[in-house]
């Protein structure tokens, strides 16, 4: 259960780790849009080069990225196959109801790379940004929404707490599973019904302890006079530094590059 790397923080030191989290989120969105705006091989290659640069700059072992790709590899294969067989135009190869066209092949390649780039970009964000920084940045970015009476601070706080307790709950699940196994609980064999029944001895204690934790946390927060976001000041002030401006410049360059590639270089479909 602990092998899921998608969405995990990888603590180490790199330029990307030190960038302003708000900037990282905005650039992630920009790059995702860009990935889907890459209409020919040149612009796709440019986005690809950016992904590789980001992965290398993050100082996180490439193995971690491969692990997070492993989770979605099935989705990549299925969508690529679907695209492969649904292309328009002259078939270059036909078998039963399947026909492969050049357009289909291009589509498949583009879709495949787009999903992979998407995952790599978002993994780079979560690997290099601690959950706290992430929600903090989200809260600030969504601040304007308070005009519409959306409780941005409360939402951010809920996200922070949820993220904070994921590893704790995983650990707890491991412990409870071990304790029930010691009493002969059998979770690996039997029919589907038997196996879902075997989950009860794990889920009940897990829920009980989650409620207990939630209650204790609420009391602890109240003891420190927590009353929501109004009037709270921050310990960590975010300020854009020189490296952040350099990052903005590079992002703009890449965007310009992709747009230019799309306009001036030959379209391949």
């Amino acid at each position: 259960m602990r092998d899921i790397t998608l969405g995990q923080y990888f603590p180490c030191d790199s330029v990307l780790h030190r960038l302003d989290p708000r900037l990282k989120i905005v650039s992630l969105i920009a790059f995702i849009v860009l990935t889907f705006c890459a209409f020919n091989f040149y612009s796709l290659a440019l986005v690809g080069a950016t992904v590789i640069a980001v992965v290398l700059l993050s100082n996180v072992p490439v193995k971690m990225y491969l692990k997070s790709l492993k989770v979605i590899i099935i989705i990549v294969i299925i969508t690529s196959l679907l695209n492969l067989f649904y292309g328009q135009g002259e078939p270059i190869f036909q078998w039963w109801i399947f026909k492969v066209t050049w357009a289909g092949i291009y589509n498949a390649i583009f879709v495949c790379f787009r999903i992979i780039f998407l995952i790599l970009f978002s993994s780079a964000l979560t690997f290099t940004t601690s959950p706290n920084d992430l929600t903090d940045a989200l809260e600030r970015l969504m601040k304007p929404l308070t005009v519409f009476h959306i409780k941005v601070h409360e939402i951010a706080m809920m996200m922070t707490i949820a993220l904070r307790f994921v590893p704790t709950l995983l650990e707890e699940t491991d412990k409870i599973m071990a304790a029930q196994k010691a009493r002969g609980a059998d979770m690996e064999s039997g029919s589907l019904v038997a196996r879902s029944k075997a989950l009860i001895p794990i889920l009940v204690p897990l829920f009980v302890s989650s409620f207990r934790r939630a209650y204790e946390l609420a009391v602890a927060m109240e003891c420190r006079c927590y009353q929501g976001g109004d009037g709270r000041t921050r310990m960590k002030q975010l300020k854009l530094m020189k490296r952040d401006y350099i990052c903005i410049a590079i992002c703009l360059l890449v965007i310009a590059g992709v747009v230019l590639c799309n306009i001036f270089l030959p379209q391949i479909r």
Partner: peptide, 13 residues
């Protein structure tokens, strides 16, 4: 080999 865990009360269900 019966094992009683550290803080076993959390396994009651």
């Amino acid at each position: 080999v019966g094992l009683v865990f550290q803080y076993p009360e959390y396994q009651l269900f």
